[in-house]
């Protein structure tokens, strides 16, 4: 069995990564609404992902409003693809030929 990436495997972080994998970038409010996490929780998970190098966080201002943009890094994308492959391998039943020996039997006539 291939090893699963524990950073991504956590459901909240997996949701964040899955969301970011299908967009170019998103802001904090978008992720907050889509993940339904609390602000503190989302911040913590984003920090964890940033430490792992999976996401890039850019803090700026739009007018006077602070804006936090988050995007998936190339390492994060590779890790996510690898995680999905591992998960698929685990969940898909093996297609290897059965090793059960077939013994021909003769029924009494």
């Amino acid at each position: 069995m291939s090893e699963l990436d524990r950073i991504i495997h956590e459901p909240a972080r997996l949701t964040i990564i899955a969301l970011l994998s299908s967009v170019k970038e998103a802001d904090f409010l978008y992720l907050l609404r889509e993940t339904k996490l609390t602000k503190g929780n989302l911040s913590t998970h984003l920090m964890r992902l940033e430490e792992a190098g999976y996401v890039e966080i850019e803090k700026s201002f739009r007018g006077k409003i602070p804006l936090t943009l988050v995007r998936l890094s190339s390492e994060g994308r590779a890790a996510f693809l690898s995680y999905r492959k591992s998960m698929k391998d685990i969940l898909t039943p093996s297609k290897a030929p059965s090793k059960v020996r077939r013994i021909p039997i003769q029924l009494p006539t």
């Binding site: 967009v23 802001d27 943009l69």
Partner: peptide
């Protein structure tokens, strides 16, 4: 949309 639901940009 963005002020209500947050900004998101779809990939090119």
């Amino acid at each position: 949309t963005f002020p209500r639901c947050g900004y998101v940009a779809l990939p090119q």
